[in-house]
Computed example of a mutant assay.
Amino acid sequence: MTVEDLPLIDEHALTIARPRQQVWTALEAFVHRSLLSAADGAMARLLGTDPPGGFAVDDVVTGERLDLAGRHRFSVYRLVFRLADASLADAPLAEVPAADAPATRLSARSYAVFPGVRGAVYETMVIRTRFHVLATRRMLRQVRRISLSDPAG
C-alpha cells in the first residue's frame, strides 16, 4: 500500500483572516521548523520514524496544497494541508482587520494505516483517545498564530 492509497482518518480546518499567500508562507515555516526537522528524541527512536523527523514532503502545489508522508513501526501515514479562499464570516471576530480583508481556509487531512496487532494498539492509543485530534488542531492553530504575527497582514 502506498501513501496515496491510505484510508482517510479525519479532517480539521479553520479560517484565518489573512490572504492565502501569507497563510502559505506561515504553513511552510511551521512545517519546516516543526514537522520536517530531524528528531533525535526518545519518541523518534521508539517509533522508528522514517524519515527521522516523522514527515517528508511528498507533493506540493504552491499556495494550495502541501502533502507530507512518513512511516514508523506501527503506521504508514500522510498529512495533507490544503488552502482555499474563504469568507471572513468564518473567521474569529478578533482576527478580522477590516470588513474587506481576505481570508483563507486551512485544512489538514490525515490518512493512515495501522498494520498488525501493534498497529491496532497504537491506533487505539493515538486515534481513539483523541490525541491525534488535539495534535492536528494544535498544528492548525500554530499556523494561524504565525500568519497573524506577520506584519505584512
Results as ranks from 00 to 15, higher is better:
111 Y>Q: 03
97 P>C: 01
53 G>A: 09
149 S>F: 10
20 R>P: 08
146 I>C: 06
51 P>A: 05
59 D>T: 01
85 D>R: 15
5 D>E: 13
119 G>W: 09
65 R>G: 01
106 L>Y: 07
22 Q>F: 03
137 R>K: 12
99 A>G: 02
116 G>S: 01
116 G>C: 03
103 A>N: 11
87 S>Y: 13
39 A>T: 00
137 R>A: 05
36 L>E: 06
4 E>I: 10
140 L>S: 04
101 A>M: 08
137 R>W: 06
10 D>I: 00
89 A>I: 07
25 T>P: 03
75 S>Y: 06
8 L>H: 12
24 W>E: 09
86 A>H: 11
20 R>Y: 05
78 R>E: 07
149 S>M: 14
99 A>M: 05
86 A>W: 12
81 F>L: 08
40 D>T: 05
28 E>P: 08
129 T>N: 07
141 R>P: 05
107 S>W: 04
153 G>Q: 08
68 L>Q: 06
25 T>E: 14
34 S>M: 13
148 L>M: 15
88 L>Y: 09
101 A>S: 14
118 R>E: 13
131 F>S: 08
28 E>L: 11
39 A>P: 02
146 I>A: 11
2 T>I: 02
51 P>E: 11
145 R>G: 12
58 D>Q: 13
8 L>M: 04
81 F>M: 07
92 P>K: 09
52 P>M: 08
34 S>P: 00
4 E>V: 10
147 S>F: 12
39 A>I: 00
58 D>T: 00
139 M>E: 15
21 Q>T: 11
96 V>D: 07
52 P>G: 08
24 W>S: 04
33 R>F: 05
64 E>W: 02
61 V>K: 02
32 H>C: 08
151 P>V: 14
146 I>R: 15
77 Y>D: 01
51 P>Q: 10
153 G>L: 12
135 A>L: 12
22 Q>E: 11
143 V>K: 12
130 R>W: 14
108 A>E: 12
139 M>L: 11
132 H>F: 07
143 V>S: 12
140 L>R: 07
